[in-house]
Design a binder for these strands. Structure first.
Lengths: 199, 199
DNA sequence: AGTTTATATTTAGCCTTACGAACGATAGGA
DNA sequence: TCCTATCGTTCGTAAGGCTAAATATAAACT
């Protein structure tokens, strides 16, 4: 998300921000969100996070294009690929979109022969989405924006630096997601783990 | 962006997942979450970044909804608000979208009375987008997903922790964006610094 | 059994975001 | 003046999202 405004006030006032009221001292200078003012650490950390979001977001668009799939489609495929299959319900839970949206996403992936729909035997209300070889191939070869841009650099860092980065990133991630979005309770993002479920 | 596959390396087995098969080696592991295969630090840092992306992405949707504007619209407004005005060209450069997209975004914002279009006097090809009081108000009060979720926690941290986080995040942000995206050459994201402009 | 309630997915209709291509209006040279 | 580059808009098309409603099934009650 953009950035600028850098949360208006220095610390404390996360709130409303009476706008004008704040560049009080001398300096009229319009609303141009402060700048110059010494950024405090909260500002700096937010800016850095936004830079991270931004570069991945933008890069993700070109990435997806190169793969012939959109970023969202790749994400669906990756989730299905974890175990070779998944239900629409599960996928949309993990991606935080509605079932209706998932249905049309799957339509498109199916049309591209990346996945197939197989009705479940146990419960005929559910559909099993299975990945096709083409789909698997797409997942395997799809470049990952983070990987491409980041991995090499990360791995060239000193050991202690890597450790520190990991620790900080995990901390920040928790700060952001522990509070949030029950929509994606598991947040199993990485899948490692993957309790390999119900198999 | 999703995640799974965890970067290239171990990659291969993104598939079926023979489950147990994987924690083969001594596998000390345990870092928190189950995972078996010992995640190396590159993995961990990627996962953390993805968690960050994911929680902001999802949360951004609800945020925008609450504000009556979409996340993209808020971003446009924020850019315009920095100096009270901006040209479509500049905004789309900074957001990394096409001029066509920007045009329709501005149409909608204009319809909502958040911005106005004023033809430039110097060069009649350019339009100055100026923010209205309503627009400014929207920017000022729009909750920022990062702020809301993150600021309080950040500010409750120890001083040294904050410092470390800032330093690491900035490092990571550079690693991600220095390489990239000519689409947005300047990538002035934060803009602070910003010459505070012509004012 | 029969009825109600709950679940899983799809359909239908409607936005917003994006793009590329084509276009009109200008600016700036040559 | 004519040519070319810019800026912004319009058009057509597609993806991704959502809500509400429709379907089909499963489960729980009576």
């Amino acid at each position: 998300m953009s950035l600028n405004s850098t949360r208006t006030g220095r610390a404390k006032d996360t709130d409303a921000v009476p706008a004008e009221s704040r560049n009080a001292p001398g300096d009229a200078r319009l609303e141009g969100t402060d700048h110059r003012a010494p950024m405090d650490r909260t500002d700096k950390s937010l800016v850095a996070i936004r830079r991270i979001l931004r570069s991945t977001e933008l890069y993700g668009r070109e990435l997806a294009k190169a793969a012939g799939l959109t970023a969202v489609q790749i994400r669906v495929l990756q989730i299905v690929a974890e175990q070779g299959r998944a239900t629409p319900k599960e996928i949309c839970r993990r991606m935080g979109v509605s079932a209706a949206t998932m249905s049309s996403l799957l339509d498109r992936l199916q049309k591209k022969r990346m996945v197939e729909r197989h009705p479940s035997a146990h419960d005929r209300r559910v559909t099993n989405i299975v990945i096709t070889p083409e789909g698997q191939h797409a997942v395997d070869t799809a470049p990952d924006p983070l990987q491409q841009k980041y991995v090499k650099k990360f791995e060239s860092l000193e050991d202690w630096e890597q450790a520190m980065i990991v620790s900080v990133l995990e901390r920040v991630a928790s700060m952001l997601d522990e509070t949030g979005i029950e929509a994606s309770p598991v947040l199993d993002i990485g899948d490692f783990s993957s309790k390999t479920g119900p198999f």
